[in-house]
Design a protein around this nucleic acid. Structure first.
Length: 954
RNA sequence: GCCCAGAUGGCGGAAUUGGUAGACGCACGGGACUCAAAAUCCCGCGACUUCGGUCAUGAGAGUUCGAUUCUCUCUCUGGGCACCA
């Protein structure tokens, strides 16, 4: 399947509409018609019956439908986000419309303004998107760009306690830092915090000096200027001290612009001896520098160690003269991996390697392992006209409907123990109605009793409501789900007891509960689960475990069905503490905010017609000014409601189009399950490098999400991703209208013909490299096609010579292999060689000519079909069998061997292809030139490479 | 700064499990055909040369009988990310 489609939502079309006042849908239609005509003109064999257009309501119905799935699963949420705002034009700008911090149209400096925006929680998929890269075959740059963009860094969060008066600990105030190098903590000579963090400290009552306040205000303002260039490092001593938890020494706290507010925790420990930026800063402000890591030479003699082949390292090379012999020696050594090494000046950790020290130090200073990602959630709103309308309405009445949460405690737990009361209080504060009953058989759990006691609460729950189950309560939650006949909105399992347990394991349990209680729980514990039924009754689910849980081990997808979202948190034990903020935040994402999804029957929500396409001067999309469209009825309660006026970004439609190709006209689903199962994943996705970061990541995210909710059959959408090179203009620059270096295919086809144009594009350079357009190059290609055409005159019934047949078969081999490896340029070169040879002959056989025409047909289909038909082949060439390579026929009787003496070619000899090595020696040694070069000496060694060369060492 | 890719005649490029560097095409020079031109066909086309050769694949080193290909260092070009702790 070789499909094609058009993705036309977005800025260029919208700007064109603003400029001309023409409806973008109209211009899009015209452009699609032009592209289609040109593609057909060039003879591309697309399956036109599957063509899609992302701006077609029949298509974007499903884009909207997918968005609603994100919404229903708590992955789409609204958040205040800064947007680029032009105060003169009074519109929000996309990043690409901001040039050097100024508005692209009018040059006014751009301001940051906060606006409520729809967000997609792609960060929840950070790890999955990273993991998925292992199972696909992408070209290296594409894979690396994905990895960098996700930007996983594993490190530790460590608290530094603060002292507002030197020498006096108040025990209350702490600064949390993030570091990937906890092993360097003994070298932390200062604490650096971002202006953003300083601002929040000021906000909660920190009495800083006027100079500090002034610096913070200034630094924040400079930051807002949002230039892309790196700013000089500035900073100020905050006037307070922090205690290095490793050395227990007081170190100064500095506020500086080189620490970012939105990375890590917004605070770092400054280790000037082992971080370039910390070093620069310490130099500038005269802060102490303390070395705590020593690079070490690993192995002088072995440049590559077999046990650590892939570890990057620094190689040191030196050339010295021997101390007494007159000899020059080269020394080579390797430093430690990635600058890590052996700890020094680090108390009892001195002498350990970085890797060994990391864990121990984190533990000793009370830190926590923490994984950070660079990836941010995806801002999914655009205050624009030309995009898919977001199919939600806001209903004040429904906002006030109370969502219910059922908290189920675990074995020997209670509704008023551990984190449950805290969670109940927090959720009630947020407007939830919370049930946290205590089971009467909590110490001797009996499944049926629990089900009976929970039944009255379960009865009250529905699609908006939430069940949270802890430990054995998690298992209870699953049993509830397999017994009901309705859907529950969200299910959170906290360290669920779900793994089968044996008697001996129960006996080994080390906690205080009596053994007999365990055996009473066993039947409950090990009761089988009907996952199919459970999955039918859940809209969304989340599972968390703790990595140091003494009683419930982490359980992954070997127990949970493949689609369950499972997270492993650090240091939560068995969640017996009073608070679990992470869980609270997760539950909060399921909170009803008054936004109500349109029912599927009302999709597509079509873009209304407007008079003006500019965003309004309040920064909202033009849709906001159409009262008739905005004012609507709530699909849930029927009361008055207003529509969302934001539209989706241009990435939306292109995030799933590959799925639609499998079933482009389906109006019951985005595509039929069977067809998806048949076609997906995409075997091979070739495209430009400009789409290997965002589009690739977004579409993988959508596909993985759709997989998780059971809509698509594969986790990853694309098996293989390659990239073609860009064709540059004749000036070597990227083709663009403004530069005036655009080549129009219509003109080229007019002048040289479609086939010449096609072949030139393939012949001009390697598939994956950027090449400059040179119209002169078309001349040679056209000559080649003319020569092929002229060969007709030579066709006869004669037989071709063995040499010609051999060359023909070598050409079949080369062309076949090169097509598969996308080496089109060399395939064409090989055919040119054959045609040059044939042109020299008086006569050629019809058979040879036909085979040549077949080989040529993928490159020049028009001329090839014409010649094929003309020379008496009934069936279309396109459906004929590809020529077969015959190794026997490709063989030549003789080969030319190069004769080398001491590595230099001195002569060539033509010998029988099947000649023996002994005979070759005889021939070569008898050779006149060889004799001359040998100068009577005996050869030390003779190397014979069959079919290639003979090398004589003297 | 970091990451990725690359560097071969006048030009686009070819050749890698290490084996005759410059295939194929463009441009250029010479010749044939023609009254002439275009088109076409044939020949030549890396540099130097005392015509024996010598030097040449961004630079320098290494391994090897032999390196465009493998190892190391450096330079430059293109692309991506960027004070990511």
């Amino acid at each position: 399947m070789y499909p094609i489609g058009f993705d036309a939502f977005g800025l260029p079309t919208e700007n064109y509409a603003i400029k001309t006042g023409r409806p973008p849908a109209e211009a899009t239609k015209e452009n699609i018609a032009t592209f289609t005509r040109q593609f057909k003109l060039l003879g591309y064999s697309f399956d036109w019956s599957r063509a899609v257009d992302t701006t077609d309501p029949k298509y974007y119905k499903w884009t909207q439908w997918i968005f609603l799935q994100f919404f229903k699963h708590g992955l789409a949420y609204k958040k205040n986000q800064p947007i680029n705002w032009c105060p003169k034009d009074k519109i929000g700008l996309a990043n690409e419309e901001v040039v050097g911090g100024c508005c692209e149209r009018c040059g006014t400096p751009v301001e940051q303004r906060n606006k409520e925006q729809w967000m997609l929680a792609i960060t929840k998929y950070a790890d999955k998107l990273l993991e998925g890269l292992k199972e696909v075959d992408y070209i290296t740059p594409a894979r690396v760009q994905q990895e960098n963009w996700i930007g996983k860094s594993e490190g530790a969060e460590i608290d530094f306690s603060l002292r507002f008066v030197p020498g006096q600990a108040d025990g209350k105030h702490k600064a949390k830092i993030f570091t990937t190098r906890p092993d360097t903590i003994f070298g932390a000579t200062f604490l650096a915090i971002s202006p953003e963090l300083a601002q929040t400290w000021l906000g909660v009552g920190w009495q800083a000096s006027p100079a500090v306040k002034k610096y913070v205000a200034q630094a924040l303002q400079d930051r807002a200027a949002a230039t892309r260039e790196e700013q000089a490092k500035t900073g100020i001593d905050a006037g307070i001290k922090a205690v290095n938890p490793a050395t227990k020494e007081e170190i100064p706290v500095w506020i500086t612009n080189y620490v970012l507010g939105n990375v890590g925790t917004g605070a770092i420990m400054g280790v000037p001896a082992h971080d370039q930026r910390d070093f620069d800063f310490a130099k500038k402000f005269n802060l102490p520098i303390k070395q705590v890591i020593e690079p070490h030479i690993i192995d002088v003699d072995h440049p590559t160690r077999s046990d650590k082949k892939d570890a990057p390292r620094v190689v040191v090379q030196g050339i010295v003269k021997h101390w007494d012999k007159d000899e020059i020696i080269q020394l080579r050594g390797e430093t430690a991996y990635e600058g890590e090494g052996i700890l020094i000046n680090s108390g009892k950790y001195s002498g350990l390697t970085s890797a060994e020290a990391k864990k121990k130090i984190i533990e000793a200073v009370g830190g926590r392992m923490k994984t950070n990602y660079k990836l941010r959630d995806w801002v999914f709103s655009r205050q624009r006209y030309w995009g898919e309308p977001i199919p939600l309405v806001f209903c004040e009445h429904c906002k006030n409907i109370k969502q219910k949460v059922l908290l189920i405690h675990g074995f020997t737990g209670r509704g008023d123990k551990n984190w449950l009361p805290w969670m109940k209080q927090q959720l009630e504060k947020q407007g939830f109605e919370v049930f946290a009953p205590t089971m009467s058989t909590t110490d001797h759990p009996i499944l049926e009793k629990w089900m009976d006691e929970l039944a009255p609460y379960v009865e009250k729950l529905g699609e908006d409501d939430i069940i949270v189950g802890h430990s054995l309560g998690g298992k209870a939650a699953l049993h509830i789900l397999e017994r009901i006949n309705k859907k529950i909105g969200h299910v959170y399992l906290v360290a669920p007891v779900i793994k089968q347990v044996t008697d001996s394991e129960l006996q080994d349990k080390k906690d205080k509960r009596p053994e007999k209680d365990y055996f009473s729980a066993k039947a409950f514990w090990n009761a089988p689960l009907n996952w199919k039924k459970i999955e039918e009754n859940i809209i969304s689910s989340d599972v968390i475990f703790s990595d140091n849980d003494p009683s419930v081990p982490y359980v992954g997808h070997e127990v949970f069905p493949a689609r369950w979202r499972i997270q492993e948190l650090h240091n939560y034990e068995h969640f017996t503490q009073a608070e679990i903020p992470v869980l609270f935040e997760n539950i909060l994402q399921s909170k009803n905010t008054g936004w109500v999804p349109l029912p599927e029957s009302e999709l597509p929500l079509k873009l209304p017609k407007v008079k003006k396409y500019e965003p309004t001067d309040t920064g909202e999309s033009p849709l906001a000014s159409i009262e008739k469209w905005v004012k609507t009825k709530c699909p849930r309660c029927g009361g008055p409601a207003r529509r969302e006026t934001d539209t989706m970004p241009n990435w939306a439609g292109s995030s799933w189009y590959f799925l639609r190709y499998t079933d482009p006209r389906n109006d019951k689903a985005l595509a039929d399950q069977k067809k998806l199962a048949y076609w997906m994943a995409v075997d091979w996705y070739n495209g430009g490098m400009e789409h290997t970061v965002l589009h690739l990541l977004y579409s993988r995210f959508w596909n993985q999400f759709l997989y998780d909710i059971g809509v698509v059959p594969t986790r990853e959408p694309y098996q293989k991703r390659t990239s073609h090179g860009m064709i540059l203009g004749p000036d070597g620059e990227k083709m663009s209208k403004s530069r005036g270096n655009v080549i129009n295919p219509d003109e080229m086809v007019e002048q040289f013909g479609t086939d010449a144009f096609r072949i030139y594009i393939m012949f001009m350079g390697p598939f994956d490299q950027a090449v400059m357009w040179d119209t002169n190059g078309l001349v040679g290609v056209r000559r080649f096609l003319d020569r092929v055409w002229n060969l007709q005159e030579k066709i006869s019934d004669s037989k071709d010579s063995p040499e010609i047949i051999s060359q023909l078969h070598q050409t079949i081999k080369k062309v076949t292999e090169d097509i598969e490896a996308m080496r089109f340029n060399t395939a064409i070169a090989k055919m040119m060689e054959l045609v040059n040879e044939l042109s020299k002959l008086e006569k050629i056989s019809k058979q040879t000519f036909s085979t040549l025409v077949q080989l040529l047909s993928p490159f020049a289909p028009h001329i090839a079909e014409e010649l094929w038909e003309k020379y008496g082949h009934g069936q279309d060439l396109a459906y004929s069998a590809w020529p077969k390579y015959d190794a026997a026929l490709a063989k030549t009787a003789t080969v030319t061997l190069a004769v080398q003496i001491n590595g230099k070619v001195r002569d060539t000899v033509e010998v029988d292809t099947e000649i023996t090595e002994g005979k070759v020696r005889d021939i070569v040694l008898a050779n006149e030139k060889v004799q001359k070069w040998l100068e009577g000496k005996e050869p030390k060694k003779i190397i014979y490479i069959k079919g290639k060369l003979v090398s004589i060492v003297v």
